[in-house]
């Protein structure tokens, strides 16, 4: 079983640009978006999309599909923020409303202020998601780990993440196989039967987890494991001057834009 984002992170055109450079760009933009305002959000979104589709060469169909999934989620999160409920009389609702519905003493309404708040939130989320996607689509997880090790994150954290990353894919495949086996024996219908199958599946997966652990610990003990997982980080990454120059220039422009429109 493949995870699409992970595959793309290893095969995109920015693969050989230094992960530190890409992470610095992505994280600085993410932090910047958190404090910026609407016009800048749109600019960041467009610029990050240019990086993803243009420079990293992620097919635009895939990028659009990724954004579509997020947008649906976002669209479902916004109504609760816009809707206001009050038990006071209609006359007391002072703000402008676009929609109002009353049942009994309660009034459900969407105010203009709520709409504004929600649209600002929509823009901030979309532009920060584009920064997140830039990181996810261009930096493979193993390289994030290498960077974490270099900046001095405790080896307990990086080792656990390393083992997890290694086995997430193994277990996803195991689940798929177990599921096929269940179906081949006639997966059952109805809620309680389905539930029982799912329970059995999780229990089998747990048993496999423990088996894998025993295999892994014997294998590593045979190679003299003493508590540290030492991995060789050989990379041919280089810091790209061209991208650094563009990132710095556009970042300054964005700061100027924010300063100008945010006044």
């Amino acid at each position: 079983m493949k995870i699409q984002l992970d595959t793309l992170a290893y095969t995109n055109r920015l693969r050989h640009v230094s992960p530190i450079q890409k992470l610095v760009i992505g994280i600085i933009m993410l932090c910047f978006v958190m404090v910026a305002h609407a016009p800048t959000h749109i600019a960041v979104f467009v610029w990050m999309s240019v990086w993803i589709v243009g420079y990293a060469g992620i097919p635009w169909r895939i990028y659009l599909r990724l954004l579509g999934a997020i947008s649906l989620f976002l669209a479902l999160s916004l109504p609760p923020i816009m809707l206001e409920i009050t038990a006071r009389s209609i006359a007391e609702i002072t703000e402008q409303t676009v929609f109002i519905y009353s049942f009994g003493v309660f009034h459900v309404y969407i105010g203009v202020a709520g709409m504004k708040k929600a649209s600002a939130l929509l823009l901030r989320s979309l532009s920060s998601v584009s920064c997140l996607y830039f990181i996810l689509l261009t930096v493979p997880f193993t390289e994030i780990l290498a960077v974490l090790r270099r900046i001095g994150v405790p080896c307990m954290v990086t080792d656990l993440l390393l083992v997890m990353y290694r086995f997430v894919f193994v277990f996803l495949e195991t689940v798929e196989q177990l599921w096929i086996a269940y179906k081949a024996r006639g997966a059952r219908h109805g809620f309680s039967r389905k539930m029982r199958d799912a329970g059995g599946l999780v229990a089998r997966l747990f048993a496999r987890t423990v088996q894998r652990y025993q295999q892994l610990s014997i294998g590593l003990a045979a190679r003299g494991f003493d508590g540290d997982l030492r991995v060789v980080a050989s990379s041919h990454a280089f810091v790209s001057r061209r991208y650094a120059a563009e990132a710095a220039a556009v970042f300054l422009l964005l700061v100027a834009l924010e300063w100008w429109t945010g006044r």
Partner: peptide
């Protein structure tokens, strides 16, 4: 520190928890 191989068990338990959260249950 007491038992180095516990680290492996923890890592695998984490992967198990991740895959569990990716399962679909009725």
């Amino acid at each position: 520190k007491e038992q180095p191989e516990t680290k492996l068990l923890l890592g695998l338990a984490g992967a198990f928890a991740f895959v569990l959260s990716a399962l679909k249950i009725p």
